[in-house]
Design a protein around this nucleic acid. Structure first.
Lengths: 248, 248
DNA sequence: CCAAAAGTGTTATTAATACACCCATGC
DNA sequence: GCATGGGTGTATTAATAACACTTTTGG
């Protein structure tokens, strides 16, 4: 915080970037835009931009960008701050500190036509994480952080439902977990677990057969936000670690 | 991220603030400084300051401030980014975005003499959270976030050891949990749990009687950073909730 | 009929909790 | 001796995991 010298304070440009994740065609994907100007012309980058005015709030800027990029009202979508990225050399044009936000959304048909929506496209995060898709600036690191944040929040919050449409079946919810975590989950134990957590899922009374087989009950998000007990990823528990150790 | 107009980009002042927590005299306390200038002259505030130069990295600025305020090398202390705070009206002097960092340290005698170290003092966080101590700017909110971050990280990481001196007993570690979480923990179950987690605590072979009673084995931090299974706070689990519900 | 997915029951193992009890020191 | 805290044992209960089995649809 400000202490003395109200002069010689370096001023920097502040940008707000968005890591918008969705589960689509069986994969975790992120919305990236093709850059139309230098630097990194033609590269993929996170959608975002500088503050629109010196008075714009960071959260408001993130919500504005989200609407601009997806055409959707930010209201109803999950949007949380991921962190600030401010390495001095991260932008060749000069000092830019970016505050990045994480957004989660279901697989919606994007009316990608809004003012700023240039060539936005969904890119599988694996392509970015495995360096198959080069992304501009330090965005690969940001995307890595965003994915890890999403992965860990599925464990102890009800956020997985943010990837689902308003009405979803237990197996659709399970597929979200499986895709985000990249590992299979026992359908039977999962069903029991999520339906027994209070206020996590509220039955709509409706059923669907869109996944084939016996009709599945449809649920809406409940009011719970924290999961107790948590739904833990395999591979991080002690038992799993011991198993891995044994298997060499 | 930068899209078009390389002009008319609002420039803002970027500050780096520190929420330095420690466990001291049986309480969780935070290092605050008494402001010597307007605004909020005379109020308590988080230590911090503007970037020293347009080239300074955010993490480096946080480490520099930490050293300036505590006289301690940032190396060895836990320092992580908490988030960016950028409400447009948070500083009456104009637009300031602050990137806040969380630092945890043991109860060390601070050689508070370093250049910038004005009147730094340890303040019990309860005094701030309960609005007994007015703090400048939006720092009450930042402190609230810092404490909540610390509390939740004790659950699933080995961070509690950051509050302990290099060699500590199990009960000293337990006291950290009890103080940060504000609730008693069964000493016997705690002992068993922490000593059974691999690479959490490494025995030094030494013993101490500084807490009275039978000599306690001294440990150093192990290499583990994540706890599996986690050490869960009471009051958040299902059983506890059910109990509370029953008790009305 | 069969395939496929939904959902229930059962059992074994692991972890959390509560608490009885013994141990090793200072005084 | 006694008080104090360190540390182990054990029984109960809850959560996890593995998997057999039944249900209900589409074709």
């Amino acid at each position: 915080m400000p202490v003395d010298q109200p002069w010689e304070i370096p001023l920097v440009a502040v940008a707000v970037d968005l890591a918008i994740l969705t589960v689509r065609s069986g994969r975790l994907e992120i919305l990236l835009v093709r850059r139309g100007i230098e630097p990194y012309l033609g590269s993929l980058a996170l959608p975002g931009g500088f503050l629109a005015s010196p008075e714009e709030d960071l959260d408001a800027a993130a919500a504005r960008e989200l609407t601009e990029e997806t055409g959707l009202a930010a209201k109803g979508l999950h949007l949380e701050q991921l962190g600030a990225y401010g390495a001095p050399d991260r932008d060749p044009r000069g000092r830019v500190v970016t505050v990045c936000y994480l957004a989660l959304m279901p697989d919606l048909p994007l009316p990608v036509a809004g003012g700023d929506a240039r060539s936005a496209e969904w890119v599988p995060v694996q392509r970015v994480l495995r360096r198959r898709a080069g992304v501009a600036f330090d965005h690969a690191k940001i995307i890595k952080d965003a994915v890890e944040r999403a992965r860990s929040k599925l464990e102890y919050t009800t956020l997985a439902t943010a990837f689902c449409s308003p009405e979803f079946s237990v197996s659709e919810l399970r597929r979200v977990y499986e895709i985000v975590w990249g590992q299979p989950i026992d359908p039977r134990n999962f069903h029991r677990k999520v339906t027994s957590i209070e206020d996590f899922l509220v039955p709509t009374g409706k059923y669907t057969t869109r996944d084939g087989g016996r009709p599945a009950a449809l649920y809406r998000r409940g009011s719970a936000t924290l999961l107790h007990p948590a739904i833990l990823r395999n591979g991080t528990g002690r038992r799993q670690l011991a198993r891995l150790r044994q298997a060499r």
